[in-house]
């Protein structure tokens, strides 16, 4: 999988690159509008992470160019301008997703994977981790071939952790992703703990080969045991 990162902020670019390379993606970072245009003219990418506010041009122009030429590259707009206009405009122009800064690395990873899954239609609506199989469309989870009953929140938590397998997912990243917009300012994410506890119990009851490890007040990590 090839991913192009168009981002003018050096540190931001490095962070994104480091995160995605850990998932074994082939990542190419560029910093300017010009560089970006020359790259997309030559190579095909599976996913393009596009910052709108570039020093030498508007990222939306790159999106327009892509769509005019009929390229099928998926595009995720990454923007510090959390403005509704940009979001609506970007999605209208054919972007696949819109990710406002600041975001968690786990969220970036999840979004990229979701876009790739939707785009490629490689027949796989199943995510397999150890002996656990998650059906993304029907929201069903099986351990070996045995059904694991989860409520919606538990499913979302498990799916998010599996997407970020072996990675540290911070509590606030998890809360924002699973509990949504309204909860993101609720200041204290301890309530996640009870969900995690239930999930752990259900997983161990079915002898799933997964462990949700708590990481010192920061968050959780899903490990295969």
């Amino acid at each position: 999988m090839k991913i192009l990162i168009i981002e003018d902020e050096k540190d931001m670019r490095h962070n994104m690159q480091a995160t995605l390379e850990k998932e074994d993606f082939l990542v190419e970072p560029v910093a300017t509008y010009k560089e970006a245009l020359s790259k997309i003219g030559v190579y095909d990418y599976d996913c393009i992470l596009l910052d709108i506010g570039l020093p030498d041009g508007n990222g939306l122009e790159i999106l327009k160019t892509l769509k005019n030429k009929g390229y099928s590259d998926s595009v995720i707009i990454v923007s510090a301008k959390d403005s509704l206009d940009d979001k609506v405009h970007g999605l209208e122009l054919g972007a696949d997703d819109y990710l406002p800064k600041p975001f968690h690395m786990a969220e970036l990873n999840a979004r990229v994977k979701a876009v790739l899954r939707r785009r490629k239609l490689d027949g796989s609506n199943l995510l397999k981790v150890a002996n656990v199989t998650i059906n993304i469309d029907s929201h069903q989870v099986k351990v070996n071939s045995e059904e694991l009953e989860l409520n919606r929140k538990e499913f979302d938590v498990l799916f998010y952790l599996c997407t970020n397998q072996n990675r540290l997912v911070s509590k606030s990243a998890l809360a924002e992703h699973v509990w949504g917009d309204y909860i993101d300012q609720s200041d204290n994410f301890d309530f996640i703990y009870s969900q995690i506890k239930n999930l752990r119990k259900k997983l161990s009851d079915k002898n799933a080969g997964l462990e949700i490890k708590a990481i010192y007040g920061i968050g959780y990590k899903l490990l295969v045991v």
Binding site: E9, D11, T19, A80, P102, F103, H104, A106, L168, S170
Partner: peptide
């Protein structure tokens, strides 16, 4: 937002 994002992400990667 950008420096905040960078700081948080760097710490996440470091952790």
């Amino acid at each position: 937002q950008t420096p905040l994002a960078i700081s948080i992400n760097k710490l996440e990667l470091m952790a």
